[in-house]
Design a protein around this nucleic acid. Structure first.
Lengths: 218, 218
DNA sequence: ACCTGCATGTTACTTACGGTAACCCCGAGT
DNA sequence: ACTCGGGGTTACCGTAAGTAACATGCAGGT
């Protein structure tokens, strides 16, 4: 086959793939992460085997979907993180960007945080341990690494910066995630209040606070 | 039926339930969260319907299992949190207790962090939104609330303490969780180093750090 | 002794879903 | 006219959740 033809086929295949992803997106956003391959295929106007030809298995499809959304969110976060402003301002802006994203499209959020679930084939277990320590959604890991890199590049904390940056990166992302998840479920305050309170925490207000009268102190 | 007989039956049922939970525990710890009801029943020396009679459905069984382990872990954490010592010491001790627990029994950790997955019955969806904002494992929520309560009881941060305590509680727990998960997977440093670095983060070292030379600062 | 009530247990089934094998159709190239 | 490859379908398998109907064993009342 010559180059032109091959390109044509490639293009067509890529377009098809995109259409399928769009359809899958609609279904997942409508039915949640438990959407069946049949449902997705039906939404796309085709049948299961085609999905499998394109994505291998359910994990592959979900991974492809997740990468799209994750890339988009990470781009927004990078923008907030790179803006020219004071550090506190930037931290608040990044937190707010993340929270605004999960608030605007909770379904996407829910989907991204859900681990693939389709990794453990029967009888695949090496030794007796399965996939310990890989619970977190890829999105969290990627955000953690991204933030770690920014911290390492920009912050001066003496020796051991690299290690510290990674710990802090994952830690801060985890803080943001957990607080965001809880907030999204209960809505106990405005987004701005949440952002400010979290930034306060990062700014050491926990250490600075006084003990409450009467107790042995916290 | 008179009281004696009823008590006897109740006791026996409770004992049976405990035996079943023990068996389920063994299987889940051996095969991971994907353990089938058949496997669990086999381990207990019985068959499926009995499990269903006792626990309703798979979610029920898993919830019962999770509560056991969660209670145990929370008890340890409370102990560390309530020890008579300086605040920083206590925070570090609590972090270390958590990390030691997930390090010692990663399988349990993995299981606890895994959402039940068996909540979405087909056709149960109210409106078009499913269970947005309830992604986090029950363990995380419970730890967050617990910590929030301690903070609120012990810390003096002026007005709005209650709200702030809950945000911080969930935030700190999330930080601990994400950092712990990452650390458990990559083991980039010792547990003590991780604890110390995280405590540093909570103690405001992020805000206090200087900008790296050459950049616009973080 | 016999029947009744009830918890305990079983086999065998249904349903749903991920994944796959085998076949089909149609347009392009020779 | 003929085959050849890509896009598509039907029909199927294996597994696992959940259930219905049937069997068994042990109290207690008559």
């Amino acid at each position: 086959m010559d180059t032109t033809q091959r390109t044509g086929q490639q293009r067509s295949a890529d377009l098809r793939r995109r259409e399928l992803l769009e359809a899958a997106d609609r279904v997942v956003l409508r039915d949640g992460p438990h959407a069946s391959m049949n449902a997705i295929a039906a939404e796309a106007g085709i049948t299961k085997p085609i999905l499998y030809r394109h994505f291998g298995d359910k994990g592959g499809l979900y991974a492809a979907l997740a990468v799209r959304h994750t890339d988009a969110l990470l781009a927004s976060l990078r923008a907030a993180l790179d803006a020219p402003a004071e550090r506190r301002q930037r931290v608040e802006s990044t937190l707010d960007t993340y929270l605004a994203a999960i608030e605007a499209r909770p379904q996407v959020y829910r989907f991204l945080m859900h681990p693939a679930d389709g990794a453990a084939a029967p009888g695949d277990q090496t030794e007796q341990g399965f996939d310990v320590g890989k619970h977190s959604a890829p999105l969290l890991r990627r955000m953690g690494e991204e933030l770690a890199q920014v911290i390492e590049e920009r912050l001066d904390v003496g020796p051991g910066t690299q290690q510290l940056a990674r710990v802090w990166g994952h830690g801060i992302v985890g803080m943001m995630h957990a607080a965001g998840d809880w907030w999204l479920g209960e809505r106990p305050c405005t987004r701005a209040e949440l952002v400010s309170t979290l930034a306060d925490l990062l700014w050491g207000r926990l250490a600075a606070a006084g003990d409450k009268a009467g107790g042995p102190g916290f």
